[in-house]
């Protein structure tokens, strides 16, 4: 887990704009932010700090990737 959940999103897009590693995207149908690329989250919390609604919860845990021979 990286960003755990986004609850109470008003669709302002600030978190999408703020994330340095492009983890969050806006769903074109619901117009709400969602976690699309969690593997690239560096857990810097800028999205949470900039969110005007305190809608983002972040977990400090991050799984260690499995090493495979090609991918």
């Amino acid at each position: 887990m990286t960003i755990k959940k986004i609850q109470g999103c008003i669709g302002c897009g600030t978190c999408v704009q703020t994330c340095p590693t492009d983890v969050i995207r806006q769903d074109p149908e619901t117009d709400k932010a969602f976690i699309k690329y969690s593997a690239d989250c560096q857990m810097c919390h800028l999205c949470r700090l900039y969110c005007p609604e305190d809608a983002i919860t972040i977990n400090a845990e991050k799984s260690i990737p499995v090493i495979i021979s090609w991918g």
Binding site: T2, S38, A39, D40, C41, Q42, K62, S63, I64, P65, V66, I67, I68, W70, G71
Partner: peptide, 17 residues
């Protein structure tokens, strides 16, 4: 293939990867 999991946890002193 896309790897789920991302960056390495114990990088550096513990031979990352």
């Amino acid at each position: 293939m896309t790897l789920a999991g991302g960056a390495i946890g114990f990088a550096g002193l513990t031979a990352a990867g």
